Each structure stands twice: as C-alpha cells, then as structure tokens.
Simulated scan of single mutants.
Amino acid sequence: MEEKLHTFLQSGLLEKYLVGDTSITESVEVEHYIDSYPEVNAAYEKLQNNLEIVAKVNAVEAPYGSLDKILKATEEETKVVALKKPNKTPWYSIAASVAAFAFGFYSFTLYQENKELHSENDVVVDELFDLRSDIEKNNSQLNDLALQLQKLNNPDAQKYVFKGNERAKDLKTVAYINPVEKTSMIDVVTLPKLPEEQYYQIWAEFQDKMINLGILDETERRLRPIPYMEDALALSITIENRNGNVPGMDNEVAEILLKNK
C-alpha cells in the first residue's frame, strides 16, 4: 500500500488537480485518494498552502485606489462572484465510477473469453469434420479390402505366382484369376529396382498377339484389379524402355501359364 501511495504522490496528479488541469476520471481518482488516505489529504493541504505562498510572493501591489475603481466598474456591468473551493465529488459518485469501470473490464474479459471459446469451438468442429472424413475414408478402404479378401477366398479363384528369371531374380508377384466371375487381381510382392528409363509391364498372351494390362510399380505394393482376358494363354511381365521400343519376348522376366477351363 505504501508503494501505491508513493507512486500516486509522485505522479503529479495532485498538482494538476489543484490547478484544475485534470480530466474527470483523474479528478475522481484524486478525490478518492484525498478522502481515503490521510497522507494524501495532508499533501493536498500542503500544496494549497504552498500555492497561496507562491501567489503572495509573486503578487504585485496595485496602485492606490485601484480596488475601489475596479469594484465600482464591475458593479455597473457584472456581479462579483466569490470564488469557492471546488466541491469534492461525493463518495457514491466515486463508487459508481469504480463500479462502472469494473463492469466494463468484466464485460471486456467475458467478450475476450467468449471470442476465444468461439475460436476453439471452430477448431474442434473442423477437427471433428476431418475425423469423420478420415473414418469414412477408412471404412471405405476396409470395405474394399473385405471385398478383395472375399474374392481371394472364393473357391473359383485361381492363384498364380510370378517368379523372376535371371534378369529379375527377386521378382515375386501373385495373380488371382476367377474365370467364373471373370475377374483378375494382382498383388505386387517384390520388384527389383530398375534404372529410371525402364519400367515393368504386365501382358496377356494370346496365340497371335500380346495385350497390355498395365504398368507394375515397385512402390505400389498392394492388391489391385487388372483387366480380365478371356481365353488368354499366359500372363507375362516384361522390362520396357521409356524410349518407345516395341515390346518383345526378349524383354520378358516372368511368365505364368493359365489353366484352361
């Protein structure tokens, strides 16, 4: 408390109040301190006395008879009003001002908290939407996986394993073909890494032609469908160049013969 009073006394508000240079808010604050703290009241009385002393020291004696002339002139034109000491603001006005300030501060605090809650609520809602989207996506993937497993477990599905030759010893890929439902799926297990200008391609072989069934990517190791080819004699995997050379059997690295129904 002593530190608070010291800070107030050093702020210069008492001096400004004494000469009428304070705002309404500052006046309320000063009068509150004067009424509440004897130290401030004593300092205020001392300042008043000092002001009177300074005024007397700097006063210039008026010529003889000046006062009578001034009074006579003012009586003819205006009324002389005696100066009074400013009335202090009643305690209830101070209390009302403090209450209003407290209410304003409390309202502002509530507004800030409400704003933060709205912001947090928006974040939670966005996260819930993202979570719901992820759940729906995962459910869709699980459904696809369940369908794929159902196809693999179908008694009519036939399993074929590709094994690489000398050019791709570590190659291993599995094909699942269902001649009854006319579906084909392939599962890339391992594909040896190739130079950037080369890639793996899978083909359906017929008596007189080869049909491209798509590219196999070593980074895409998952079960995926491929076109079903009726009456195909075999499936083969080749290494192709991106320069557009015509595919040939010399490029073949794995082959499976299909069972005839």
Rank of each mutant, 00 (worst) to 15 (best):
R221D: 02
P227V: 05
T219W: 00
R222Y: 06
T219K: 06
M229L: 08
E218L: 04
G244K: 08
L223C: 05
A234C: 14
E230L: 09
T219Y: 00
M229H: 09
E220S: 13
E240M: 14
R242G: 09
A234M: 15
R222M: 12
E240Q: 15
G248P: 00
D217P: 04
L233Y: 02
E240T: 13
R224S: 07
I237V: 10
L235W: 14
N245Y: 13
A232E: 11
L216Y: 01
E218F: 14
I226T: 01
A232K: 09
E218K: 13
P247S: 01
R242C: 06
N245I: 08
D217F: 15
G248Q: 05
T219R: 04
S236H: 02
R224Q: 07
I239N: 05
L235M: 12
R222Q: 13
T219C: 00
N245T: 15
Y228P: 08
T238I: 04
A232W: 12
I226E: 04
I239Q: 04
A232F: 11
L235H: 14
V246Y: 02
G248Y: 00
R242F: 07
N243L: 14
L223D: 02
N241K: 13
P247Q: 01
R242M: 10
S236M: 06
N243D: 13
N241F: 03
E218Q: 09
L223E: 00
E240A: 13
E218A: 14
I239W: 00
V246I: 03
R224T: 05
R221E: 02
G244W: 02
E218M: 05
T238M: 07
I215W: 08
E220F: 08
E218D: 05
R222K: 10
R242T: 14
E230K: 08
G244Y: 01
R221A: 06
I215K: 14
I215H: 07
M229W: 11
M229E: 13
P247N: 02
G244F: 01
S236F: 03
N241G: 12
N245G: 10
I226R: 03
T238K: 06
R221L: 09
E218Y: 06
D217R: 12
L235D: 15
N243K: 14
N241P: 10
L223A: 02
E218R: 10
I215T: 12
M229A: 13
L223W: 01
T219S: 04
A232Q: 12
L216R: 03
N245D: 12
T219E: 03
P247E: 00
P225N: 11
P227Y: 03
S236E: 01
I237E: 00
R221C: 11
L216S: 06
T238A: 07
L223N: 05
G244T: 00
E230T: 13
R222H: 08
